[in-house]
Design a protein around this nucleic acid. Structure first.
Length: 290
DNA sequence: GGAATTTGACCATC
DNA sequence: GATGGTCAAATTCC
């Protein structure tokens, strides 16, 4: 079975489990809050599953990978992912809670909004942000934030360029969140992508890959439920975005070598041996404690 | 008053 | 000409 299928099944199984819990909760009128949390989580899980199934390219590639004699395909995928890292653009979907309506998701960097555009075919406008230190430190990092048409609670954030500034709004955070990272499809090189991904970006990417599992009911609901945790203003982190996914670390965890690797090259060279590292490597992370 | 945001205009690309 | 990205003046916020 290919990775994407595992992911989808995983999502659906969690949705089923949560629905069962919800049914139990409904018998107990005192657990309304808990029920609300469960409903939110179920919805986001199904949203994830639908998104996966909806991605025809992922499914198409899944079929390729499913081919037992697909070592060449795997090689190709490794190269493709490697190229993706070489590009400076990454797209991240953020599951955003209350108080994060403006898409000014705090990812530890200072951003200044410089534009907003209605995008053809999209309901929601796209916001354009650049690093506050663009002129003082010549930092060319840029990000685009757009509320998902499919799920308004999700902000799709595309990062272009790497930070060359030293300034961050905060020290590395200890986010409680889950994150879905999708490969940016059909990225066409632009003038903003002249530089290659910096080690700094790689570092942040490695952080993103740190994983967890968050299908633990007790943990999720400790302190008012996972959503309460995730979206508490003091804790909501940026890049700390969340998809609300319940995908477990089994399928979402990046190889430990990612964290220890010094460069993207060294990391990806190890990928040659990883059969199950799927193509569009839809990663979903639920971070509990860093 | 300085910094940040908004928004219409302009420009590049296809 | 349509679309997406950026600029910059006006406006708002702290």
């Amino acid at each position: 079975m290919v990775m994407e299928e595992k992911l989808v099944i995983n999502e659906l199984e969690q949705g089923r489990e949560l629905a069962q819990r919800l049914m139990s909760n409904l018998k107990d009128t005192s657990s309304i809050e808990s029920s609300k949390n469960l409903i939110s989580e179920i919805l986001s899980i199904y949203q994830n599953a639908i998104s996966m199934l909806d991605d025809k390219k992922v499914l198409k590639r899944s079929r390729e990978i499913d081919d037992k004699d697909s070592k060449n395909v795997i090689k190709k995928e490794v190269n493709r992912v490697q190229k993706m890292f070489e590009k400076k653009t990454e797209k991240v979907s953020f599951f955003v809670g209350a108080g994060q309506e403006k898409g000014s998701i705090d990812d530890g960097y200072c951003w200044r909004k410089y534009g907003q555009k209605e995008i053809h075919g999209s309901i929601n406008p796209r916001g354009y942000f650049r690093c506050t230190h663009r002129f003082t430190q010549n930092c060319l990092a840029v990000k685009q934030v757009q509320k998902s048409d499919r799920d308004p609670s999700i902000f799709e954030v595309k990062y272009v360029g790497s930070h060359t500034c030293n300034n961050t709004t905060t020290s590395p955070k200890t986010p409680n969140f889950s994150i879905s990272m999708f490969q940016q499809e059909d990225i066409k090189p632009t003038k903003t992508e002249e530089a290659m991904m910096s080690l700094e970006d790689l570092e942040s990417t490695k952080n993103i890959f740190r994983t967890f599992s968050f299908s633990n009911y007790e943990i999720e609901n400790a302190g008012g439920g996972w959503k309460g945790n995730l979206f508490h203003e003091d804790q909501l982190s940026p890049a700390a975005t969340t998809s609300g996914s319940g995908i477990t670390s089994e399928v979402a965890t990046a190889p430990a070598s990612v964290e220890n690797s010094e460069t993207a090259d060294s990391y990806f060279s190890s990928l040659d041996n990883i059969i199950d590292f799927g193509p569009d490597w839809l990663l979903s992370c639920d971070v509990l404690n860093w």
